[in-house]
């Protein structure tokens, strides 16, 4: 157990956390402002990844491909919101869950019809395809550093948008007291569409950035959306700051659990028990942490709603 190994795992946790943040930021805004549980948020992540994979293949440029995917998914999100999802804002959560679950199935099959059932190929841009030696003995994939940088930049951008712009003010108003913002606001439905499109764009960014690292395939959204919900709940519904902190907590807890739990258990028990218990406990760790946080802070770390 060396310092470089520890540092490497911290970077891994940060990178995973920042990508979860991109997903959770949109989710928490939609949940907080529209009071809408959107299970299909993971599908937007998938669509972002597929659009990016296709656009990168078509244009030959990774950056252009990602930008096209962002625009395309944001437009798709806006369309989805204004045509379908807006009708569910007033309904109870069960209807929303059912409708958006149906949407997952429809979008999965839609993607399968367009792109086929097999995972798609996305290459890492050649410039950052190899590892970089950060410190002596610490090799880290250059592309993951890019992912971390993009995540941090987006977090900063979102902070500026939410805290220092007029639309950000309206978003905060909506998150802290929806009814009052509704009563005072002019174009609330326009705001909803903008927020939904923004959330879709962030999800697409996560999908596009993770495309070269993970398999781009049908159903990729479902495996990650549960974690995004955990982040939202830990961070406090509607709070972008909470989503950032929650995402980094989840990313680090998951990473450290996998990296160290088995080794630590070996100190206390036989290797066989540790090897059997370690992996199982590591995959439960996030949920244990979530339960603990909710025990002491039932409304999450940074509750946005008054």
């Amino acid at each position: 157990m060396t310092a470089t190994f520890l540092l490497e795992q911290m970077l891994n946790g940060l990178q995973f956390g920042l990508m979860l943040f991109l997903l959770a930021a949109g989710l928490t805004l939609v949940f907080g402002i529209m009071n809408m549980i959107n299970l299909a948020h993971g599908s937007l992540y998938m669509i972002g990844a597929y659009l990016a994979a296709t656009a990168v293949g078509y244009t030959g440029s990774f950056v252009a491909g990602v930008l096209i995917a962002l625009a395309g998914t944001a437009a798709f999100g806006a369309l989805l919101e204004s045509s379908l999802l807006r009708r569910f804002y007033g309904r109870d959560h069960l209807s929303q869950v059912l409708a958006t679950f149906a949407l997952i199935l429809i979008l999965n099959d839609g993607v399968r019809m367009i792109w086929g059932p097999h995972a798609m190929l996305v290459n890492v841009p050649a410039l950052v395809s190899g590892p970089i030696e950060l410190l002596p003995g610490l090799h880290y994939p250059a592309y993951r550093l890019v992912v971390i940088a993009v995540g941090l930049l987006v977090a900063l951008g979102l902070y500026l948008l939410v805290v220092h712009t007029r639309i950000g003010m309206r978003i905060r108003a909506g998150a802290s007291n929806r009814e009052m913002a509704n009563a005072l606001g002019g174009n609330i439905s326009g705001l909803f569409t903008v927020v939904f499109a923004l959330g879709a764009m962030l999800a697409a960014l996560a999908g596009a950035m993770l495309g070269p690292v993970l398999a781009v395939e049908v159903g990729m959204g479902e495996s990650i959306i549960i974690l995004a919900f955990v982040v939202v709940v830990i961070g406090g519904i509607g709070s972008v700051r909470g989503a950032l902190i929650g995402a980094i907590v989840v990313g680090c807890v998951d990473t450290f659990g996998r990296a160290f739990l088995t080794t630590i258990l070996r100190e206390f028990s036989s290797p066989t028990v540790a090897d059997n218990l370690g992996p199982s406990l590591a995959s439960m760790l996030i949920y244990i942490v979530m339960a603990a946080i909710l025990f002491w802070k039932p409304r999450g770390l940074f509750p946005a709603q008054a």
Partner: peptide
């Protein structure tokens, strides 16, 4: 000898 979660997405820890 490492066992990972079924369906795990990210293997950065194990690669480390």
């Amino acid at each position: 000898e490492t066992y990972t979660r079924l369906g795990q997405l990210d293997y950065s820890v194990e690669i480390g």
